[in-house]
Simulated assay, not measured.
Amino acid sequence: MHATVSWLGKMAFRGETGSGHEVLVDGPPDLGGEERGARPMELMLLSLGSCSAVDVVHILRKGRHDVVDCVVEVNGERAEEPPKVFTRIHLHYRVVGRDLRESVVARAVSLSAEKYCSASLMLSQAAEITHDFEVAQP
């Protein structure tokens, strides 16, 4: 994998992935940022949430479950002093599907957290990561 980060001025940067996608990143205003893009630590939460969401949807679809929506809300707490690493991260999944059992979603969330989500497994070395979920019908 490869990524390139290019400075655009002030505290803004353009990130480009090896697969050709771009994201705009900006530092916080107290460091000179202008709110032009996501902050780097917000991107870590997005990475974790999206990594796990891909796993959960893939696991459920592989099991031939009729998933119609999946939303993951990710909340992180950071240390007070630099380096302001994440100390706690909580993921809340809202999975919508037809005839979707809670036990099946619980298994998919667990498999993502404990086996498949590289971001979760990596960040869990530094932060306590917790999960919960809800299942809804369309």
Rank of each mutant, 00 (worst) to 15 (best):
E34P: 04
L31T: 10
G32H: 09
G32N: 12
G33I: 08
T87S: 09
R78I: 01
V57D: 05
D66R: 14
E73C: 04
P29G: 10
P83L: 14
C70V: 12
L43A: 05
I89M: 12
L45N: 04
K62V: 03
E35F: 09
Y93N: 01
T87G: 05
D66F: 03
A38E: 09
V67C: 12
V74K: 07
P83K: 02
F86D: 03
D69S: 15
S47C: 11
N75I: 11
S50Y: 06
G76H: 01
V67S: 13
D69H: 13
L45P: 07
R78H: 01
E34D: 15
L91A: 08
V57R: 11
H58I: 12
V72Q: 00
L46N: 10
A38M: 12
R88F: 08
G76E: 04
G37T: 02
V71F: 11
V54Y: 00
P40Y: 10
A53V: 12
G33Q: 10
K84Y: 08
E80N: 07
R61F: 02
D30H: 10
H92D: 09
V54G: 00
R61I: 14
L91H: 04
S50F: 06
V56E: 06
D30T: 09
H58K: 11
A53N: 08
D30Y: 09
A38S: 14
V85A: 12
V72H: 00
M44Q: 09
V67K: 05
N75C: 13
A79L: 13
V85H: 11
P40I: 10
A38Y: 10
A79P: 03
C70N: 15
A53K: 03
C70I: 06
K62F: 04
I59Y: 00
R78Q: 11
G33N: 06
D55C: 01
L48F: 04
S47Y: 05
D66P: 06
A53Q: 06
S50G: 12
C70E: 03
L60Q: 13
S50R: 07
R88H: 15
C51V: 07
G37H: 02
P29C: 09
P82M: 12
V74M: 05
V54N: 01
P40N: 09
E80L: 14
K84F: 12
T87P: 07
M44I: 13
P83N: 05
E81P: 01
E80W: 05
N75D: 13
A38P: 00
Y93Q: 04
V74L: 07
E34Q: 12
S50P: 05
V57P: 07
P40Q: 10
L31C: 05
I89T: 03
L45H: 05
V72S: 02
V72F: 03
V68D: 15
L45R: 04
S52V: 00
R64N: 10
V85S: 13
I59R: 08
